[in-house]
Nucleic acid binder design. Structure first.
Lengths: 153, 153
DNA sequence: TTTGAATAATTTAAATTTGAACAATAACTC
DNA sequence: GAGTTATTGTTCAAATTTAAATTATTCAAA
C-alpha cells in the first residue's frame, strides 16, 4: 500500500507507523479477547486478574495506571470480579483512602488454571515474528511508549 | 522491569511484547485523541473522515474493515458525522444493499483544514524514534498485524 | 428459476468506558 | 496547628462499542 507523499516524507512515515500500530494492537486484542472470553472473563477483568496474580495485592489506582484506564472503569471491573468471588477489597493499612484488591483463593485458582494456557496462546500468536524480531519490536515499542508517557507529564 | 522467567523464555518474550504493544498503542491513542477532540471530533469520527478524505467515497462495510470495528458502531459514527453535515449517504449504483459515504463540501473543508495540523502532531510524537527506527517498527508491526489477520481467516 | 445461503446496513439491548462531581482522607504551607 | 491543596475511590450521566436480531438484497446451486 504505497501511498503518495502527501505531507512530506517524515509525516508519511509517522502516519503509516501510527496506522500499523493501531491495527496490530487491535487485531492482537481481538484475538486474545476471544481466547479470554472462553475463560468466562472480559479482557479488562483478565488484565486485572493477571496483575494481581503476578504482582500481588495492589490498590485500584495502581491497577488504573497499569492498564491506562479511568478510575470509574476500574471500580466497575473490580466490582464484577468481586461479584464472581475472584477478588476481595481490603482496607489499606497505611492510607485510609486506599483500598487494596487481592485475589481470593478461588481467584488464584482460576488465575493459575488459565494463565499458562493463555501464555501458550500469546506465544503462538507472536510466533509469526522470530525471536530477534520480537526483541526488537519490544524495544521500539517500549521506547515509543515511555517517551510519549514522559512527554505528557 | 526484568521479570523472572515464569512461563519459559519464548512465552515471556511474547507476553512482554504484547504488554508493550498494548501500552504504546493506548498511550499514542490517548494523545492523538486529545488533539482530535480539539477539532470537535471523536477519534472514530476523525478516522472515518480521514479515510474518506484520502481514499474517496466508500461503503460503511469498507470503513468497518479499515478500522476493525463492528458495523453497528460505524453506522452510529457515520450518523453523527452526517448530523454535523460532514458526510452524506448515497445509494451504491452497483449494489442496492450498499450505501456509499462521501464527504460533503463542508466535510472536505474541515478535513483539509485539520489534517495537515494533525499530521504535524503525529510527526512530532513519532519523533522520539529515529527515522530508521520508525521504518523498522512499521515493518515489524505490519508483519505482525497481517500475519495475525491472515491466520484468522 | 426458484430455493437457500451469504452479505450490507440498521436497530436494539447490554456492556464498557469516560469524564465530572463528590466524599473522605492525606499532605503541604504558613 | 489551621487552612488549603491533592489524592483516593466511588457514583452518575453520557458516549462508545459490541453482539445479536432484523430487513433487504445479491449470489449460487440445483
Amino acid at each position: 500500500m504505497k501511498t503518495t507523499r502527501r505531507y512530506g516524507k517524515k509525516a508519511d512515515l509517522a502516519l503509516t507507523m501510527w496506522v500499523k500500530l493501531a491495527r496490530a494492537a487491535t487485531t492482537f486484542g481481538h484475538m486474545t479477547g476471544e481466547n479470554i472470553r472462553s475463560f468466562g472473563l472480559t479482557q479488562p477483568q483478565f488484565g486485572a486478574l493477571e496483575c494481581l496474580g503476578h504482582l500481588g495485592p495492589m490498590t485500584i489506582g495502581e491497577l488504573c495506571r497499569k492498564h491506562l484506564v479511568s478510575g470509574g472503569n476500574m471500580t466497575v471491573v473490580v466490582d464484577n470480579l468481586q461479584k464472581e468471588g475472584y477478588v476481595e477489597r481490603i482496607p489499606s493499612p497505611t492510607d485510609r483512602r486506599s483500598v487494596l484488591v487481592q485475589l481470593t483463593p478461588k481467584g488464584r485458582k482460576l488465575f493459575e488454571s488459565i494463565f499458562s494456557e493463555h501464555a501458550r496462546f500469546i506465544t503462538s500468536l507472536a510466533g509469526v515474528l522470530s525471536e530477534p524480531e520480537q526483541k526488537e519490536l519490544s524495544r521500539l515499542l517500549k521506547k515509543l511508549g515511555t517517551s510519549l508517557a514522559k512527554g505528557a507529564m
